[in-house]
């Protein structure tokens, strides 16, 4: 659905600093149709810039972007019919009624005039804003305005939704509703390209993920692969029943074992082998006299992985 080929975006650093900022550094990325693709990164990583370039709002310094096989730079209006975009800031026309706001964009996306009213009612109902159909947009709450923004983004039934921090500023309940809505839209066949600071939310809804920092992609892949380091490394915790065995030193001496951290009767490690190889390692430790009472494969959260990646602990 989305293809980025060597996409680069350079800016000048703020006045007073020498050099230039690379908001996107030769990004090459494919977002297949039907995915919920999350783009994760700290502030200034280049996420919003990437999304804006995908939507044709910003030209890349170099590289090529296609949406549904349409070159965004050369044929932006053709590409934009496939995109529903929600920016990371609140921006609606306060001087319109809710239905007028959605209808404006339905017409701007050139829906058939006869179907516009029906579609407007449909998306307003989908967003749970039926009671606010005639209300002035300026009088709506922040969460409602965000829902109205999503209504605007989906009114022309685009196959691709580009959502930049859609949960920012929403209360917990509204965030839950948003997650459910994204899942529902994905079930209906829409591809979702989303950024968020709330990594736990992304972990729940994304099927694929890219971790970005300083304009570069640190990891890209299916969410399970990304979380496990593309299936190569397990994070394992081994517990001892009693002290007296230098488990940390023993583990470090094993081939392939890395990132060993020993704390009391527990030791954490990164193990690149299969389950059978792990079982053999544990058996060897027991034979060497380690009083092992528990072995646990740690499931790492996206926050923890992101924290380790962005600190340079792992690549």
């Amino acid at each position: 659905m989305i293809s980025l080929e060597n996409v680069t975006k350079e800016y000048d650093l703020p006045t007073g600093k020498v050099g230039q900022l690379v908001a996107a550094d030769r990004l090459t990325l494919q977002v297949p149709a039907g995915e919920v693709f999350g783009l994760v990164g700290p502030n200034g990583a280049g996420k919003t810039t990437t999304l804006k370039m995908v939507c044709g709002l910003m030209l890349p310094t170099a590289g090529r972007i296609t949406v549904n096989h349409v070159d965004v730079e050369h044929d932006p209006e053709e590409a934009q019919q496939y995109i529903g975009y929600l920016a990371d800031f609140f921006s609606v026309y306060d001087d319109l009624q809710a239905w007028e706001y959605v209808e404006h964009f339905a017409l701007a996306y050139k829906l058939e005039p006869g179907k516009v009213r029906g579609r407007v009612k449909e998306v307003i109902a989908l967003m749970g804003l039926e009671s606010k159909y005639d209300a002035m947009v300026g009088g709506l709450s922040r969460g409602m305005k965000q829902r109205l923004g999503i209504a605007r983004a989906i009114v022309h039934d685009p196959p691709l939704l580009v959502l930049d921090e859609p949960a920012s500023g929403l209360d917990p309940r509204a965030r839950l509703e948003l997650k459910e809505l994204i899942r529902r839209l994905n079930r209906e066949g829409k591809t979702v390209f989303i950024t968020s600071h709330v990594l736990s939310d992304l972990e729940e809804i994304c099927t694929s993920l890219a971790i970005m920092e300083k304009g570069k992609l640190l990891r890209v892949g299916k969410i399970d692969d990304v979380m496990r380091g593309a299936g190569r490394t397990k994070r394992v915790r081994i517990k001892l029943a009693s002290p007296g065995f230098a488990l940390g030193a023993w583990l470090l001496a094993r081939p392939g074992v890395s990132e060993v951290k020993e704390a009391g009767l527990e030791a954490d490690m990164a193990f690149p082998g299969t389950d059978a190889e792990l079982a053999a390692l544990v058996r060897d430790a027991v034979n060497a006299g380690a009083p092992i009472c528990g072995v646990e494969e740690k499931v790492e959260t996206l926050e923890a992985l992101f924290s380790r990646l962005s600190s340079g602990e792992v690549m």
């Binding site: 690379v22 990325l29 494919q30 694929s208 304009g215 570069k216 640190l218 690549m315």
Partner: peptide, 14 residues
Amino acid sequence: PVPAPAATPLPAQT
């Protein structure tokens, strides 16, 4: 030329 980036991307791709 733009200074070389600090991080190296993982080749994994969807």
